[in-house]
């Protein structure tokens, strides 16, 4: 079936691109951007890296619709779930427990 005779992507080149993206994300972290911009940038880069691994290394490029669906549906579901919870956990007007940090307990330094 599909595994036997497909054009192999150049895995080495994909790896090089992945490493380049790693360097870019490191650079972005140290740039004097605003917190929001930095976070967005880093996550976009991470998403691109993940997509490269999934598409080329995990062969999603050549797999059929079924496996594509199995791979994509949970990701969408995860995103929907996280977004649905934002109003309650992050933006809840009702006074609930905070996720603020306490002062670290006294520990040995």
């Amino acid at each position: 079936m599909a595994t036997e005779a497909h054009d192999h992507p150049n895995y080495f080149m994909v790896w090089v691109v992945l490493l380049l993206l790693l360097v870019v994300s490191l650079a972005a972290a140290y740039m004097p951007f605003s917190q929001t911009l930095t976070v967005i940038l880093i996550f976009v880069i991470a998403a691109v890296k993940a997509l490269l691994v999934a598409y080329f290394f995990m062969h999603l490029k050549i797999e059929g619709k079924l496996i594509l669906a199995i791979a994509i549906v949970p990701v969408i579901l995860f995103v929907i779930m996280t977004i649905s919870l934002l109003p309650d956990i992050v933006y809840n007007p009702v006074e609930t427990a905070t996720q603020k940090l306490e002062a670290p307990k006294s520990t040995v330094h």
Binding site: D88, T96, A97, L101
Partner: peptide, 11 residues
Amino acid sequence: AQGGDPLLWQH
């Protein structure tokens, strides 16, 4: 007391 949210467990 440690910064957790019990509501998240429910969700």
